[in-house]
Design a protein around this nucleic acid. Structure first.
Lengths: 229, 229
DNA sequence: GCATTTTTTAATAAATTTTTTATAAGTTTA
DNA sequence: TAAACTTATAAAAAATTTATTAAAAAATGC
């Protein structure tokens, strides 16, 4: 579930926004000063910030700039004055959206959803965050480091597991043996790349029905390997 | 330098936008129908699209949806009616911004810059490469290294894929066999150029309906080959 | 420190791609 | 239209890449 931080000193407005957002299944927290707002935003617990321009303590400009120095999360700036909006837009502080009060709560919700969707789309939080990857008969439990094929567990060694997981997390992307080596072995692949081939073979023996006709890890001749989704 | 595609049927407006964007050092192309706009947007050469809602042929809604199915690049939707804007925002088509005509050119430029900046910030120049090239029935997925003709996958070897991709990325440009050899084989063409001909033939067998009347890769007699757009 | 497991290396076999070659077919030009 | 030249086609030979196997080396656990 997504978490939203509202930084706003007018309590009535903040509560109204909170109510509407909660109706759309967001989890909402409120801070009413710039300093505390900034601190909370930087805690890393929130997925989006709604930030009022006029604040006691540090003002909205400054808060926005400081958040942006450390975080890429969407920031929606809110102001009572249309002129202010034009001004901050021009400043290029890195806010993602601007709204003039008063605005309809449903518009706020729509904008929040749109920004979340874009952020997910671009940053791609989808499958990578999940602990369990499931593709056809294959199930990878990342925290438990277990692999199941059609419900039956297969025992994987460390490197095998890491390699399979990396490929499964980035399906449909062709990786060269060099790239895979760098990724899993954390080394600039001056070393020998042959070990990647051997590991691929061992993984295939464990997850494929017929290693000659792989259903999961395909060979792209002359290029590398690709996890087929 | 960033490339912007304007999809707009009113020539005067499109030209005005173009002029202003060019003053800010963007490279700008204009399409004036929905269908052509979509095709160009999917070509993979543009970093941002400015899309009018009212268009001859396919309308802006549809174009937006179709672009979003394959591309994550920013889309700014433009409409004469405020009501339309509210409507499309609600639809969640995946547009990144909405502007109501008339708007000041400087505001357009500011928004374009803001969207570019965010896109770069979130996606990072690493992954930013345009993955999918689509021209008529032909679709090339560069990271997956897959080619589809009318939705059906065709299996390509490395050299075939590289050659096709190079030509498709540089359409309407005639390349001699020597140039293609240098480009794909990374060699000063001391070697034999005949292999280019053979590869072209193999590619045509896979993507053309009738290899004697190629729709994609044309032969320019005595000169070389050209990918027709 | 020893036994066991995992990882890497290395050599060979198998598979696939790429290039070469020869010939046919199509254009251009005089 | 014939000659000269360029490209298309097909098939084989060559080169490259990956799969497989087994054994050596390294790491791990007790």
């Amino acid at each position: 579930m997504s978490k939203i931080l509202i930084i706003e000193d007018e309590e009535a407005i903040a509560d109204l926004e909170k109510d509407y957002l909660e109706l759309s299944d967001f989890e909402v927290a409120i801070e009413n000063t710039g300093d505390k707002g900034l601190e909370t935003a930087l805690s890393g617990k929130f997925d989006l910030v709604i930030l009022d321009l006029m604040l006691p303590g540090m003002d909205g400009f400054e808060v926005c700039k400081k958040i942006r120095e450390e975080k890429n999360i969407p920031i929606i700036m809110v102001s009572a004055k249309k002129d202010d909006i034009d001004k901050i837009r021009g400043l290029g502080l890195g806010a993602d959206d601007y709204m003039t009060k008063p605005f309809s709560p449903s518009e706020l919700v729509a904008r929040v959803k749109a920004h979340m969707a874009r952020y997910d789309r671009l940053v791609g939080s989808s499958q990578k965050m999940n602990d369990i990857i499931e593709i056809r008969g294959l199930k990878i439990d990342k925290t438990a480091r277990r692999v199941y094929v059609n419900g039956e567990e297969r025992i994987f060694t460390t490197k095998e597991f890491d390699l399979l997981t990396f490929l499964a997390e980035n399906p449909n992307h062709v990786y060269s043996k060099e790239e895979l080596f760098r990724e899993i072995w954390d080394m600039d692949s001056i070393g020998d790349i042959a070990t990647v081939t051997v590991h691929i073979k061992k993984i295939r023996e464990k997850i494929e029905f017929d290693t000659a006709k792989p259903q999961y890890i395909e060979t792209i001749w002359g290029v590398g390997y690709r996890f087929k989704i």
